[in-house]
Computed example of a mutant assay.
Amino acid sequence: MIRVLLVDDHALIRVGFRLVLESAGGIEVVGEAGDGRAALEQTAALRPDVVLMDVRMPRLDGIGATRRLVEAAPGVRVLILTTFDLDEYAFAALRAGASGFLLKDAAPADLVGAVRTVAGGEAVVSPRVTRRMLELFAHRLPAPGEAPRPDGLDPRLAELTPRELEVLHRLAGARSNAEIAAELFLSEATVKTHVARVLAKLGVRDRVHAVVLAYETGLVRPTLG
């Protein structure tokens, strides 16, 4: 069973999500919270697999709650509820550690699928969408410096080999494993191994968070039009 905590300051929304999720099978709603602070308390007490988190709430908003939650309970996945797919809140949520975002008017099947996806360790947003969001809201990133050099890597990239840096750069360009394999003249199996090592060394949850880190470190520069 996938254990889910619902966090939204509107009780009717929580009721609707509960009905959808519990009718799907294999998902149990273990608790509810009406604000970010209550979400942290409920997460500590109930240890859900997935937290379905609203953004705009009293006492502590969803972005702040997500940041604290992923630090305190790294095994818990956060799925953010948002109104627009390319807005500042969704972007801020990804940087805070959320595993994806979902539109509030999503179809029931999409809600169920998103919960199952993040529970399985994947992100509910493609690296391509993440890249676009980073370009739209690049002003919120640290100012990128010169391209990383072997003698001057950001500490977060220092453990990567030259080949792994190449792979990370292409991940940030929203390349698939097949595209990376073609560009670097490698097999897809080898690329998959490199990607797994990159994620492990960087301590990031998935490809989406690797993209965010690549921009934050200046490995990739936003291309604003």
Rank of each mutant, 00 (worst) to 15 (best):
L157H: 12
G203W: 10
G62W: 00
A189M: 12
A114V: 07
A90M: 08
H10D: 08
E32G: 07
D110H: 12
A109S: 14
A138Y: 13
G120V: 07
V15I: 14
P58K: 05
V112K: 00
V211T: 12
L186N: 04
E166D: 15
G25W: 13
E32I: 06
T217S: 10
L60N: 02
R131F: 02
L219C: 06
A189H: 10
L199D: 05
F91R: 08
P155M: 09
R3W: 09
G152E: 08
R205Q: 13
D49L: 05
R149G: 14
V125H: 03
A119T: 02
L219F: 12
K104I: 04
D9C: 05
D206L: 00
A109W: 00
T190K: 11
V198S: 08
G145Q: 05
V208P: 04
A106E: 05
E216L: 01
G173N: 14
R132Y: 13
S126Q: 12
T117N: 06
F137H: 12
F84C: 08
L153N: 10
L40K: 08
A214C: 03
T190H: 13
G16A: 07
R156H: 11
A39S: 02
M53H: 00
E164M: 05
E183H: 11
V195I: 14
L219S: 02
R207M: 00
R163V: 13
R170K: 13
A45I: 04
G34Y: 09
V50G: 01
D8Q: 06
A72S: 12
T223I: 12
R128A: 15
R67M: 06
R68C: 00
E159F: 10
R163Q: 14
R59N: 11
E28H: 13
A181C: 06
D151Y: 12
P48V: 02
A90H: 04
T66Y: 00
S187N: 05
P144M: 08
A93R: 06
D206H: 09
A182D: 15
V167Q: 04
P222Y: 07
L213Y: 00
A96H: 02
H209P: 04
G100K: 01
R175T: 00
R205P: 00
K192M: 07
